[in-house]
Design a protein around this nucleic acid. Structure first.
Length: 343
DNA sequence: AACTCGGGGTG
DNA sequence: CACCCAGAGTT
């Protein structure tokens, strides 16, 4: 199923006009540069825009240019990324800044093809930077655009795939006036009007051309994705303190909480006894429980058990508690640290 | 094609 | 509680 040129132009123009009056006041729209846009797009992957806005300003102040980030330490990028999640993105961003300096003379490249060579930049982000920062006539499809075009065409099949959605987005951008406005407007519409649960169809600039609206199927289109089942895990975190120092570990560069720091923690698929925990750290006693909490991720439900220990035989790396703010922690480990006053 | 990567907002 | 979010990389 496709739409013709006239329909595409009508829809695109209506969205562009709506966007010119309804655009939210977001920081990267006021201080609009390709580097700022690349930053915002990478931070916004799978992350709601309101949560990105606050952090973006800190990021652009600390790293105003690709070079400033390329010359910094990865840890400095992770520090500003704390709480945003998907920490691999921060490591990729650092890599991308180095690529930009090494291969593109310090300027964010302009074409989709070049942008795709950057670490962490896929089809969506490449199209977004090319079209929004440089006004290239290239389509983009994110979760918002997917929902908007599915509803426009009342496309509620499970079989609807990326290819179909990208073709729809292509037809719209091919017949719009200003690609940057159309693409950003499509996403804005999905984020603020054509929302998943309670769409505000009466406010929508294209409801008269929306097949789902005409059929009253807005809430059935598109079909929801199957939620991954949550695996239960048990993490045992131990606060080892020695005067004004605390033991910390640096997590691996891949996997969960990549590159972040933590207090010594055991990860297990089943419950462990106090004896097993003590055995792991080679301490026989002085292991005192401080509490537990649940930490839920998209595909995991983790039960955290927090201990403190005044005995230490295992090789541990000690750091001054006064420098804790220099280490990036994911939220779960921030909760762990909050169980004890460390100042 | 299915998994793995966070954490919070929303209904 | 389920579902979603300006997705990308790996297997």
């Amino acid at each position: 199923m496709t739409i013709n040129a006239t329909q595409s132009a009508n829809i695109a123009n209506a969205i562009e006009n709506w966007f010119s009056t309804a655009a939210r006041d977001l920081p990267w729209r006021n201080e609009d540069t390709p580097w700022g846009r690349l930053l915002s797009e990478l931070m916004a992957q799978q992350t709601q825009i309101d949560r990105v806005a606050e952090k973006w300003t800190e990021m652009i102040i600390r790293f105003p240019t690709p070079l400033s980030m390329a010359e910094s330490e990865e840890q400095d990028v992770l520090l500003l990324w704390q709480g945003l999640g998907y920490y691999r993105r921060a490591r990729y961003l650092k890599e991308a800044s180095e690529q930009i300096c090494r291969e593109y003379g310090g300027e964010v490249p302009q074409t989709v093809e070049e942008l795709l060579t950057l670490r962490g930049v896929g089809k969506y982000t490449a199209g977004a930077v090319a079209s929004i920062a440089y006004n290239a006539r290239k389509p983009i499809v994110d979760g918002n655009v997917h929902r908007v075009v599915c509803r426009l065409q009342n496309q509620g099949d499970y079989s609807v795939n990326d290819k179909w959605t990208w073709k729809m987005a292509s037809q719209l951008v091919d017949h719009c006036d200003t690609p940057s406005k159309l693409n950003e407007g499509l996403m804005e519409l999905g984020a603020t009007v054509c929302t998943p649960k309670k769409p505000k169809c009466e406010e929508c600039p294209v409801h008269s051309m929306c097949s789902a609206f005409q059929n009253g199927t807005q809430l059935e289109v598109p079909k929801p994705k199957a939620a991954p089942q949550k695996q239960k895990e048990f993490h045992y975190a131990v606060l080892f303190k020695k005067q004004n120092k605390i033991a910390l570990e640096h997590r691996a560069g891949k996997g969960l909480w990549a590159g972040m720091w933590q207090v010594p923690t055991i990860e297990s698929s089943k419950k462990l006894t106090k004896k097993e925990i003590g055995s792991h750290f080679d301490v026989k006693q002085h292991l005192e429980k401080l509490g537990t909490f649940k930490h839920t991720l998209t595909h995991k439900m983790i039960e955290f058990h927090v201990y403190e220990c005044s005995e230490y035989k295992k090789q541990l790396d000690w750091y001054d508690t006064a420098t804790l703010h220099e280490f990036p922690f994911a939220n779960a480990q921030k909760k762990v640290l909050s169980f004890k006053s460390l100042s």
